[in-house]
């Protein structure tokens, strides 16, 4: 069972593009984590390990083009390799939805990126759905409902 503490998406310029917290933290603690982890991970060499220890927990990260996906995980409860797979599944799902996802897609459709993440990981940090197909079906259903709402409004 995975219990991710948080997931951050940081660009290689150090800008936070997405963040999702699965454990209650104060704004100060959240800022500290972001300020500590961003330089720590950006300065790591490509051949360095993707898992590192930070304070009382471990951090797993993976780089996709100019974006770093960073996950805080619970010691002795989460599997580091499984977390890497979850990150990869998140990226794959966004890639299928947007069609070759890029930073611009996430900036302009951050709501969709969050929707995909929420379908994948539950609010307690455990995995909700592992099937990419299922996640995409749900997201497309959400889009259809939203589109119908707009259509009703236009036609009303």
């Amino acid at each position: 069972m995975s219990h991710i503490k948080y997931l951050l998406l940081v660009s290689r310029q150090g800008k936070v593009r997405l963040m999702q917290w699965y454990t209650p933290l104060t704004p100060k603690q959240k800022t500290k984590i972001i300020n500590d982890l961003t330089p720590l991970i950006l300065t790591r060499k490509p051949k360095m390990c993707n898992i590192l220890e930070y304070n009382d927990h471990k951090v797993v990260y993976r780089r996709y083009a100019s974006l770093y996906f960073i996950c805080g995980i619970t010691n002795n409860q989460d599997n580091e390799l499984l977390t890497l797979e979850i990150i990869h599944r998140f990226v794959e799902t966004m890639d299928t939805y947007f069609g070759n996802v890029c930073e611009l897609d996430i900036i302009f459709h951050f709501d969709k990126a969050y929707d995909i993440l929420n379908e994948l990981i539950m609010c307690d940090g455990s995995m909700a759905e592992s099937s990419k197909k299922e996640i995409l079906n749900n997201i497309h259903a959400m889009d259809a409902i939203q589109n119908n709402d707009h259509l009703d409004r236009v036609l009303s």
Partner: peptide, 8 residues
């Protein structure tokens, strides 16, 4: 670039 990103 990483050095520059880290130094904000």
């Amino acid at each position: 670039n990483l050095k520059m990103a880290v130094s904000q």
